[in-house]
């Protein structure tokens, strides 16, 4: 069990983003991860064509949080038929911004010596939670009061049996910080904060009933359109 132990941040398993049939034999699978404060795209490139592939480059369309490659795609050697390589591409969040649908959608173009190929991928919003996301308690209380009720969104997290310390630890490994814990009538209430790379703060109340395996998550944010993506990240973090 990982209870009480630092176990790293949640990283989605790689999925196929570009099937070989759509890219003249180039297959790309990948994931976007946050590791030690750095956001990176982790790619596996497979050459399923009959010819060598060279001259790789990558470009992103503008996107909701300004994600952009922070370096060139490093594929040093030609990729032979049937060869597969893993590549890590560091990302920055200071690229051009345009609101995407859904918000966490990223459109990517990859070129090689054969052609240019396009694909879309979805990344977990938790990669954008910064290490400096612990809000001061006084500021939290004032902000919680200040954000109007119509900006509050509520979600159920079902089938989760972790205790509140395990929950806090798992979330903190993903830069979701518990700043207060209260027990009221047998319910554990955790008050939490996180900050996105673009400066948006999200405040959370996680309510856990001892008798139930379902948690209630209430999120308050001045940009409430991010809330459903934050909920998705809570689910992924707590259930993995």
């Amino acid at each position: 069990s990982n209870v009480g132990m630092p176990c790293g941040s949640y990283v989605e398993p790689k999925t196929v983003w570009l099937p070989a049939v759509k890219a003249k034999g180039l297959e790309i699978s990948g994931t976007v991860a946050r590791r030690m404060g750095t956001i990176q795209m982790e790619l596996t490139l497979s050459n399923k064509a009959m010819q060598v592939m060279t001259d790789f480059a990558i470009q992103f369309n503008r996107n909701s949080f300004g994600l952009a490659p922070a370096a060139a795609l490093q594929v040093h050697t030609p990729l032979s038929p049937n060869q597969t390589i893993d590549v890590v591409l560091p990302l920055s969040t200071v690229g051009p911004v345009m609101k995407m649908e859904p918000l966490n959608n990223l459109q990517v173009a990859v070129k090689n010596n054969i052609d240019v190929f396009y694909f879309s991928c979805i990344y977990p919003i938790s990669i954008l939670f910064v290490e400096e996301g612990r809000m001061e308690r006084q500021v939290f209380l004032a902000t919680w009061k200040d954000i109007p009720n119509e900006n509050e969104a509520q979600f159920h997290i079902k089938d989760c049996r972790l205790n509140s310390d395990a929950v806090s630890n798992k979330l903190q490994n993903n830069n979701i910080f518990s700043i207060a814990k209260r027990n009221v009538d047998g319910q554990e209430m955790l008050y939490q904060s996180m900050r996105l790379t673009n400066g948006i703060w999200v405040l959370a109340e996680l309510r856990m009933q001892a008798s139930s395996s379902s948690y209630m998550l209430s999120l308050k944010c001045r940009a409430p359109e991010v809330s459903q993506f934050v909920f998705q990240s809570y689910e992924a973090i707590l259930k993995n």
């Binding site: 308690r137 209260r182 009221v184 009538d185 008050y191």
Partner: peptide, 20 residues
């Protein structure tokens, strides 16, 4: 938790949320 004098405020918040 650090005793910053806000413990009571969080208790009030939690109670108001539990019993609106």
């Amino acid at each position: 938790e650090i005793d910053d004098g806000l413990d009571e405020a969080f208790s009030r918040l939690a109670e108001s949320r539990s019993n609106p």
